[in-house]
Design a protein around this nucleic acid. Structure first.
Lengths: 213, 213
DNA sequence: CGAAGAATTGAGGTTAATCAACGAGGGTGG
DNA sequence: CCACCCTCGTTGATTAACCTCAATTCTTCG
């Protein structure tokens, strides 16, 4: 399923700019006045919030077609950072608000986001460390833009986030994430050699560990 | 702030029925085909998901103006249950999809929901038990429809959820929730006598315990 | 080659879960 | 009307999971 839906905004008078960012830079800061809405053309973006004492929670991983910068009140409620190189389409705020069919266009994308947030709330509130990591790996595999290569039951993926980023996404510490990966590796469910993120996964054995099935 | 926005759909041809439910009944089951979108007129609704082994996570508490039953794919992704008696406006699905300005109307409500889900993800992923309970109480106070009565620093509220429901909302066990309430009570930050949910809160002393400030 | 960042692993501490008992309140039926 | 039951809440003792602190290795890059 591709999220990209250029036709939905075709015919409107929106000023749509193209913007690029290098990996691991801040695109939007929490509290910033909302100037534009962004849709990802290529690359990955993570959305997070910080507590005053430095604790961080990442709650959305967005790929091509995903949107961010949408806010009900004129100020961004969260931080958006590039994970990879990204190319974005920026829809400037003022004309966008007038375009009624633009709101209708993003409504569909917001619905998808809400489902993902629901699933993630279950993970954060109710799953064990191993279940969280297993769910994370399955999520990577099931995201089409990640181009997981499938041979029978064996899938090859690339994990581009650091242990620390994964921890902040899963509500764990980086050590616990590392131990969960090691546990899955010792169990023969995943395998990897170097720290380059390339990983082979036995999905049939991993899926039952996610807690969802 | 009132979410209710009748005017936004005025002039459309949507079939809007009124529906009532008693407390603690299932309004929508996970997996059901989506027939209607609901907006709350009065009362409270909780949205949750169940894992196969019975673990439950509640992730939204909705009051007047809130919407639910919105889905990107024709099937509900979560359970909706009444918490109190509720009166709903049901917008039937098929005509609603055609109404472009209806999508635009719900987009605004979805944006508010997404912000709440972001905040809740931080709670679930990064806050301690006491911080979660403190955040929950503050959330009750700051929800206008809950009619918290404020005298100086002292606020009176009514906690209508059971310990078990609160636990499923906060990603804890009911015992841990009970202990956190007892801890706040012993500290003199909250007070209550009988199990009727009526509670007095010192907001100035409670707020610093939420972790957010 | 050396330095810096990332990942792994171990030891020990802390928090919250689990298991269990008990008390309060509300509703029902005798 | 009272006795009983059932649900809900509280509290205690113990266990288990995860976090914290720390040391070591691996990897990349200048």
């Amino acid at each position: 399923m591709s999220y990209v839906n250029e036709s939905a905004v075709a015919g409107s008078v929106l000023a749509a700019r193209s913007v690029d960012f290098p990996p691991r830079v801040t695109i939007i800061d929490e509290g910033e006045p909302a100037r534009a809405i962004y849709q990802i053309v290529s690359g990955n973006v993570m959305i997070s919030k910080l507590l005053p004492d430095g604790r961080r929670q990442i709650f959305e991983l967005l790929g091509p077609g995903g949107i961010f910068g949408v806010t009900p009140n004129g100020h961004h409620d969260s931080v958006a950072e590039s994970l990879t190189e990204v190319r974005l389409t920026a829809f400037d705020k003022i004309p966008a608000e007038n375009a009624s069919n633009f709101n209708s266009f993003i409504a569909e994308l917001l619905k998808i986001q809400i489902c993902a947030l629901h699933e993630h709330a279950v993970l954060l509130g109710r799953k064990s460390a191993v279940e969280r990591v297993a769910s994370y790996i399955m999520e990577l595999i099931e995201t089409p833009s990640n181009q997981a290569r499938i041979n029978q039951d064996l899938v090859t993926i690339r994990v581009i986030m650091t242990r620390s980023e994964i921890a902040d996404y899963l509500g764990l510490t980086l050590e616990t994430v590392s131990r969960a990966f090691s546990h899955l590796k010792r169990s023969g469910i995943i395998s990897y050699e170097r720290h380059d993120g390339i990983m082979q996964v036995h999905i049939k054995r991993l899926r039952p560990l996610t807690g969802t099935y």
